[in-house]
């Protein structure tokens, strides 16, 4: 354990788009919890040209916490999530990568739990799950929960992926594993997150799960409309056809 503390470094990728209110809070939370647990870390903010001034706020935070803790790797305009991760990894100095949303729905208090589980089993991937144990969601009405549970039931039935939450995007990866997975995934949007796990299974990577409480966006809008459901359904069929 002390050995791991001195050798491992965790690069936390934060892709942002219009997160001017959330960014200071999420960074404060990450720094607070990571310093408390004693793991070496860095935060890489990948802002896709937010018009609300997210980048300026990130620059100000960099002044507070230092350029070794907070790295800014902005891009001109909104590009895909997969390319954001590739872009982030290029500049990451850690041997582990943590990806999470910057909208406060993924609480940094779970990062030390992810790390401990990874260390205990030498997992290639650790993923947060809303569907088992103490996991759950806050701020969802009955309809949203029903759709989520229904979609999850269908996914588990058709794909039997051995992972309870495929659409979540709060995960820890070994750096080379993440790199290989991104390169083999072709889906966009949140089907991308599902494909990452399915591909991980194909490569026989080991996957651990940590139950997380998902608190839906405190600031800003959360979306689940017809187009998301269609996206999910077509994504599921696609994975149904590739998953071995």
């Amino acid at each position: 354990m002390p050995d791991a503390l001195t050798t491992n470094k965790y690069s936390i990728l934060l892709p942002t788009y219009n997160e001017v209110e959330n960014l200071p809070i999420i960074i404060w939370l990450i720094v607070t919890y990571m310093q408390k647990s004693g793991y070496d870390f860095e935060i890489i903010v990948i802002d896709d040209g937010s018009p609300d001034g997210t980048l300026e706020v990130a620059q100000e935070l960099q002044k507070v916490y230092g350029t070794s803790k907070i790295l800014l790797r902005p891009r001109e305009k909104k590009l895909g999530l997969g390319t954001a991760y590739i872009h982030g990894i290029k500049h990451a100095t850690g041997n582990f990568i943590i990806i999470m949303d910057a909208d406060l729905s993924h609480h940094p208090k779970y990062i030390p739990e992810f790390i401990k589980l990874q260390e205990a089993h030498n997992y290639d991937v650790v993923t947060g799950t809303r569907y088992v144990g103490d996991g759950g969601v806050h701020g969802w009405d009955f309809k949203r929960k029903l759709i989520s549970r229904g979609a999850n039931f269908l996914t588990q039935l058709l794909l039997r992926p051995g992972v309870s939450d495929l659409t979540g995007s709060f995960r820890l990866y070994k750096k080379d594993v993440l790199h290989k997975l991104i390169q083999s995934c072709i889906s966009k949007g949140y089907v991308f997150q599902m494909e990452m796990i399915i591909r991980a299974r194909q490569f026989n990577y080991t996957i651990g799960e940590v139950p997380i409480a998902f608190v839906d966006r405190v600031y800003g809008e959360s979306k689940l409309g017809g187009s998301e459901i269609i996206q999910f359904a077509s994504g599921l069929l696609y994975l149904f056809d590739i998953h071995r």
Binding site: H107, V137, H138, K145, R149
Partner: peptide, 19 residues
Amino acid sequence: TVLYKTFTFNNCEEAAVQL
């Protein structure tokens, strides 16, 4: 199954308050 899991889906009130 889906209905049971929907009704027993944790609400995570504490997590929201803590946040």
